[in-house]
Amino acid sequence: MQKKILSRKSLGIPYMIFLALFVMAPLFVLIYYAFTNGQGEITIQNLTGFFSDPNTLGTLCYSFGIAAVTTAVCLLLAYPVAYVLATSHLKEKSVILLLFIMPMWINFSLRITALKELLTWLEGNLAYHPFLNTVIGMTYDFLPFMILPIYTTISKLDGALLEAARDLGAGELQAFLKVTLPLSLPGIISGVSMVFLPAMTNYVVLDMLYNSTYIMGSLIGSYFASYNWHGGSMIALILLGIVCLFTLLTRGDEEETARGGVLL
């Protein structure tokens, strides 16, 4: 008996090793670098430095702006699509849904390159609208991650609830606002966290669309490129803190998020 339990537990060992080597250890290294300086002394200078440097704060705001606008645009585009698809009686529903998520299966850089060509042709020079282009690029990239969880929550919604709302005197709009919308919130939260957080750091899209403004991801990259591991680590840690904060805020709906969360 004892042996059996041991052998079952031992199945987890490879992953434990992986976790220790590639998650825990780097995290400690990160924390160590974040709170030390070049001489190996413990300091919070990196932290105060981040919040007193207008450049880094500007980058944080810019990243936040890009992520917020991208998330909002994704949500505005995705919700109606997900709603219509989930509530329609179309037989070809799954095919249409497939069309929306198909871009995910095409190589990322190929997609963005194609988008770049299209935008260049439309705008003449990409440098005219860096913010707009970045939002377009990110929306294009992240839209499926918003559609899928919302689609899943709405299509799982019990139709009888809507009928109950109508039965109790609600018109179609009222029934949507009071029943469908609040009950699809887990899907929205799931979608938002899957779009907002990557959008804050994904600097590849900016790079490829010739947006030379830094966002958090590129900022960290630049610190490491100039061998300032301590400053870079602190920014990475701050970002991690923001992610944790965000997760905590939506934690109340953890269970529902799990229900609404897909993914492939």
Partner: peptide
């Protein structure tokens, strides 16, 4: 007439209470 304009109310088979 749509259901919301009828002075009729329903008790549903699986209750259909609003979970939120």
């Amino acid at each position: 007439l749509p259901p919301n304009e009828r002075p009729i109310n329903t008790v549903f088979q699986r209750y259909a209470l609003f979970p939120h």
